[in-house]
């Protein structure tokens, strides 16, 4: 009796494993192929039969990207914009979250609803007016223009997440500071922020990802080669008359490294930040 149960469990385990391997091919093969293609020479990309490792195996595609100042500029731009968006979003959102979590004030509910609703505004709706607005504000084709634009999309989420986080912290913490004569700034930066690091990291990662991946506004609000970010840079490589597939795959691999590093080091925060919207 116990033997047949064991056998059945072994059979089930094999079934689950086979299904998982099937799914892993679906999920992982394209990524593996990208990696393999980045080491090929461009003439071997579509060779038949296809192989993972070819005679032309080399780091040439990577070398060509890393030694090209135009392409490296894409990375510099992406890092500058994404880091600035992350830093500024966190500061502005911490202020707002502190107000929401610790004060009562007129129009609190209305401002709430606006902040929630803003998240559903489609980027394409803002695109046409932004074009004119950014020219008017003299921010067309600048870092400032991109950073402020992205903050519109990162701030609401950050505010709501951080308010939720602050609400889990007992009010006695910051009330004590206030009684001792410290102002609200002291309460926020000396007391609340240090104990909110996990929440801040989650929001920070999420914000960085949004900014690093953004495409539509980077495409429309920048114009010159030296202001383009990585997603647009990849597309520019594609636009040239002959496709350098190996270089496009190499720049793609390089482009996902920051996200991969964030994922590996902060997996726990990643999950909590991402799922907070759906899981209570």
């Amino acid at each position: 009796m116990s033997k047949t149960k064991k056998q059945r469990e072994a059979l089930e385990r094999t079934g689950v494993l086979l299904a998982l391997i099937g799914g892993a091919v679906f999920a992982g093969f394209p990524v593996l192929w990208m990696l393999a293609s980045s080491f090929k020479s461009n003439t071997e990309i579509f060779e038949s039969p296809p192989r993972f490792i070819t005679e032309g195996f080399s780091f040439a595609a990577y070398a060509s990207i890393l030694s090209d100042p135009t392409k490296m500029r894409f990375f510099v731009n992406s890092y500058v914009v994404a880091l600035a968006v992350t830093g500024l979003t966190l500061v502005v959102a911490l202020f707002a979250a502190y107000a929401f979590s610790r004060f009562d004030f007129p129009f609190k509910k209305t401002i709430n609803i606006v902040i929630v609703g803003v998240q559903a505004v489609p980027p394409i709706t803002l695109l046409v007016p932004y074009f004119g607005l950014m020219v008017f504000l003299r921010m067309f084709n600048t870092y400032q223009g991109l950073v402020l634009t992205y903050m519109v999309f990162t701030l609401p989420y950050a505010i709501i997440m951080l308010t939720g986080y602050f609400n889990t912290l007992p009010r006695e913490l910051d009330e004590a500071v206030r009684v001792d004569g410290g102002g609200p700034m002291t309460a926020l930066w000396r007391i609340l922020v240090p104990v909110s690091v996990p929440g801040i990291v989650s929001v920070g990662i999420y914000t960085f990802m949004i900014a690093w991946n953004e495409y539509l506004f980077a495409l429309t609000l920048t114009k010159t080669q030296d202001m383009r970010t990585v997603p647009i840079g990849i597309q520019l490589l594609m636009g040239q008359h002959s496709y350098q597939w190996n270089e496009m795959m190499a720049i793609s691999i390089l482009g996902c490294i920051p996200i991969l590093i964030l994922y590996i080091f902060f997996q726990r925060y990643f999950m909590s930040g991402m799922t907070a919207g759906a899981v209570k």
Partner: peptide, 26 residues
């Protein structure tokens, strides 16, 4: 009563300039 609005002001300014005005414009 003014303190929370001071803390909220960067958010409100940003959302008015880059959300409310563009929507009115479009």
């Amino acid at each position: 009563n003014l303190v929370p609005f001071a803390f909220l002001s960067p958010t409100i300014i940003l959302l008015v300039i880059l959300m409310l005005i563009p929507i009115v414009m479009v």
